[in-house]
Nucleic acid binder design. Structure first.
Length: 875
DNA sequence: TAAATCGGT
DNA sequence: CGAGAACCGATTTAG
């Protein structure tokens, strides 16, 4: 057993410090958490580094302390604690209790005094002491055995005050810190000190005289000066100030060192508090174990086959898979429940069951599921066509609140207070330790999922109806899931030999550039490492530093472009970057994703991920295939139709977001512009620059285009100045002129922010919601971000609504017309089909018609289209 | 695992 | 005053 180590924490001071040092975080129910968060990260760090054996958190008790007896104005004029902080104290106490750390407060005494008293006691018992506070006053307690930690910004950044550190920093002993404060005072505690004496003067005086008392004993010898007069004049005040600043080390506390023994945290309790406060990063990082959770008993049967009468008209079904890659992974098992009986069956047994297969394919048998798209796709690989999905927990949760993250049933269920499922991690383990458990464990786990879906269905549907979002969910997202599933399963064919050929050529160019760059740099280095590259550019070659990142020099493209004239290596690096990106992401990356059986890529569209309602695409991401630069655009030549005699047909909305803005803002000029079919950027340029159509130069149009983009994103002068490379002032003038020309837009932007503040969320055309808790934040950054989001989300989200509706209408129309054409991809404002050549003529009519009429706006929607032998040719 | 970078709309 | 365009995913380095 080593030496005892005592940790004494100044609770109030640390909470204050954290509150002001960190942005105003909130948890899901809107409670502010930043002070508790800062306290926690600091505590975790110290626990880990110091491993204390005894801990106490001291708090200030009430408003009055013994110091008020001698000086009524003590701590007077203090701002009262902000409510956003006050509300955090109960949670802070709860957290401390969960750590099994003792907390203490005593009438009439401040936390300082409690800490000072215990520190002294511990020292006499020859223990090491660490004091942590945000308040430098405590440094007066430093001795050889007592170290005072003062948190700096960020809370985990700590300055350690030992007597020698204090000596180094101020040239004073710890005891003289009190004298210093006596002389200089402390505005935050309303301690007066001597007027005109600040830190510098106080230190100078103390170096000469040693203490306040010694100073006044010898003051007659001091040579005449203004300062001397001040000192004499304020002698009483200085002495009183010193007294006030002195921490009392003999407070009558009924607490002994034995009482603050630290047994270690109750890990489960700590995790619970973290959960409640949404400290996700801490939960992820920590290795705290949750005690085997008491989950309610569930009865389930493991069956080999299912008699028909067990398969009801409405059931919750869950398909358990190995992982999220449902286009390649295996099914682990199935569970079914009708709320009365729950059963589990393995994939192998299920394949032998005609009854189950028929039931799954029967449209009239209603299924409650979660992520039905994944189930549909994986079942299709097993030769089963899933039909009749009536409820999808994943999609319903996403509509209730798109901020809900996680896609497994346990996580989603928890969002609605349902906790009777264990985390996948506890069942399977994670990383290399992942493994399938024994059958009964697995069966129970999977059964619980089906049961959770069954239990939550009525609650969530009720919530959707209450929010008037049931139609959005049931008529849009749910049918869309099935369409997306079909698109993914169909896949798009990739000609690997084209990619390989391009890769070979790229390889040559890249290695030539590499040689050239190393030559110009005078040494070999990894061009892909921004860190190494930064050293070469800004240290070795001495190029001017335009922008810095958190960790060093920025070497981003916009920075390099500004440096092009400085050194010819810069252009080579830009070229290298561009080609290396193509090679690694779009040649090698894409080839890895091609399924050898069918030479196709089968992306997964994430339907419940983005906060605006857009889709995203993964493995591979087919929504960011290059197009802007010709070299990259050629990648599209590798995407080809799956059959001879077919083509790829692409149709995209023209200016959909600005049209949505015109509709929502009802701005007269904007609506008019779209109604007469003008080029919107030219129109904007005319209004902003006050010129006629034929006087709009290409530069004016370019500027107008950037302004239009800015408007959609929730404009700021800074953002526009960056995108146009102009000054902020000029950008601000552009914006001003724009809003003057389009007053309806101005009004819309103001109204939507107001509405967000009032309701706490914004909505799209089809009533999709996004909650914006930060819209009322006092933190400028957070609030500004929320305001821009309030402006952008209804626009981006409504555009997403429109194309989703178009996909559903398009799917229906293709079926109606008996066409073979297949929808393959969606790229935010664009749909890509493959079609037999014979159907092109009809598609040229149908596709624009369906897309343009998906939702009626007060301005027309316009669709452009093209087709060709490859995606490249369908421009 | 986080940060930097860059591809798309 | 502040510090900032909206929404994504993949690859690479570096700790």
């Amino acid at each position: 057993m080593g030496k005892e180590k005592v940790l004494l924490l100044d609770g109030n001071s640390l909470a204050y410090r954290a509150f002001f040092a960190l942005p105003l975080l909130t948890n899901e129910s809107g409670i502010h958490t930043n002070a508790v968060y800062g306290f926690t990260t600091m505590l975790q760090k110290i626990l880990e580094e110091e491993k204390p054996t005894k801990i106490l958190v001291a708090f200030d008790a009430g408003k009055t302390t013994f110091r008020h007896e001698s000086y009524g104005e003590y701590k007077g004029g203090r701002q009262k604690t902000p409510p956003e902080l006050s509300e955090q104290f109960p949670y802070l106490r709860k957290l401390i209790d969960a750590y099994q750390i003792k907390r203490y407060e005593k009438e009439l005494y401040e936390a300082d005094d409690i800490i000072g008293t215990l520190a002294k006691q511990a020292e006499t018992e020859d223990m090491d002491v660490i004091i942590v506070s945000g308040d430098k006053d405590l440094t007066q307690l430093a001795t050889d055995q007592v170290t005072v930690y003062i948190t700096r910004k960020g809370m985990t950044d700590i300055e350690k005050y030992t007597p020698s550190h204090i000596e180094e920093k101020y040239g004073l002993s710890p005891q003289q810190i009190i004298d210093m404060k006596g002389l200089m005072g402390d505005t935050s505690d309303n301690i007066p000190g001597v007027p005109g004496v600040g830190e510098k003067t106080a230190i100078k005086l103390l170096k000469e005289y040693g203490s306040v008392e010694a100073l006044y004993e010898q003051i007659d010898n001091m040579k005449k000066s203004k300062m001397k007069d001040k000192l004499i004049e304020n002698e009483e005040q200085a002495k009183m100030s010193k007294k006030l600043a002195t921490i009392f080390t003999e407070a009558p506390i009924d607490l002994k060192l034995e009482d603050i023994e630290y047994p270690g945290p109750n890990e489960e309790e700590v995790l619970n508090v973290w959960q409640e406060l949404s400290f996700k990063s801490l939960i992820d990082k920590s290795d705290y174990k949750v005690e085997e959770k008491e989950t309610a008993e569930i009865s389930f049967e493991i069956v080999k086959d299912v008699p028909d009468d067990m398969l009801k008209d409405v059931m919750a079904v869950h398909v358990e898979m190995e992982n999220e890659h449902y286009h390649t992974c295996l099914i682990l098992g199935f569970s079914f429940t009708d709320g009365e009986r729950t059963f589990y069956i393995t994939f192998e047994d299920m394949q032998q069951s005609e009854a189950i297969k028929n039931w799954l394919e029967d449209e009239s048998k209603k299924k409650y599921m979660s992520d039905s798209k994944a189930a549909q796709a994986i079942l299709k690989r097993a030769g089963i066509e899933l039909r009749g999905v009536e409820f999808d927990l994943l999609l319903a949760s996403y509509i209730v609140n798109p901020a809900i993250s996680g896609d497994d049933v346990a996580t989603l269920a928890k969002e609605f207070g349902y906790t009777d499922i264990q985390a996948n991690e506890t069942i399977y383990g994670k990383g290399s330790k992942w493994s399938v458990p024994n059958e009964s464990t697995l069966a129970e786990h999977v059964s619980r999922k089906a049961f959770a879906i069954w239990s939550l269905q009525p609650i969530i549907e009720e919530k959707l109806k209450e929010n008037e979002q049931f139609d959005l969910y049931y008529d849009l997202e749910l049918p869309l899931a099935s369409i997306l599933g079909a698109m993914e399963s169909e896949g798009i064919k990739v000609d690997i030999s084209t990619l390989e050929k391009m890769g070979g050529e790229l390889e040559k160019k890249i290695s030539a550039l590499e040689t050239e760059i190393h030559e110009l740099a005078g040494e070999k280095f990894n061009i892909n490492s921004p860190k190494q590259l930064g050293v070469i550019l800004f240290e070795k070659l001495g190029l001017p530093v335009v922008k810095k990142t958190k960790t060093g020099y920025s070497t981003a493209a916009d920075v390099l472009e500004k440096l092009q004239s400085e050194h010819k290596i810069v252009q080579y690096i830009l070229d290298y970057r561009q080609l290396a990106k193509l090679q690694s992401t779009y040649i090698e990356g894409l080839i890895k994703e091609v399924h050898p059986e069918d030479s196709k890529v089968h992306t997964r569209f994430q339907q419940a991920l983005t906060s605006t309602g857009r889709l995203s695409s993964t493995d591979p991401n087919l929504q960011n295939i290059p197009i802007r630069l010709e070299e990259g655009r050629k990648i599209r030549q590798a995407f080809v139709p799956s059959q001879e005699g077919w083509v790829l047909f692409a149709a995209d909305y023209s200016q959909i977001e600005l049209r949505v803005l015109a509709h929502m803002s009802n701005d007269e000029a904007l609506v008019e512009a779209f109604n007469v079919g003008m080029d919107i950027h030219t129109r904007t340029a005319m209004d902003v620059f006050h010129v006629e159509a034929d006087e709009v130069t290409s530069n004016m149009r370019r500027a107008a285009k950037a302004v239009n983009f800015g408007i959609v994103y929730g404009i700021s002068d800074y953002g526009l100045s960056q995108s146009l490379n102009i000054t902020r002032k000029e950008a601000a003038q552009f914006i001003d002129k724009y809003l003057h020309s389009f007053p309806g837009v101005k009004e819309y932007m103001e109204t939507i922010v107001q509405e967000a503040k009032l309701k706490g969320f914004v909505t799209t055309i089809l009533n999709r919601r996004r909650y914006l808790p930060d819209i009322t934040s006092r933190n400028f950054n957070l609030r500004s971000f929320a305001e821009r989001t309030a402006m952008n989300t209804p626009i981006q989200g409504s555009a997403a609504d429109i194309i989703k509706k178009a996909m559903i209408d398009m799917d229906a129309r293709l079926k109606e017309e008996g066409l073979q054409t297949k929808l393959l991809l969606q790229v935010h404002d664009e749909l890509i089909f493959e079609a037999p050549k014979e159907e092109i003529e009809r598609l040229e009519k149908i596709v624009p018609e369906v897309m343009e009429n998906a939702i009626q706006l007060s301005v027309p929607l316009k669709v452009d289209f093209d087709y060709g032998q490859t995606w490249y040719d369908a421009k």
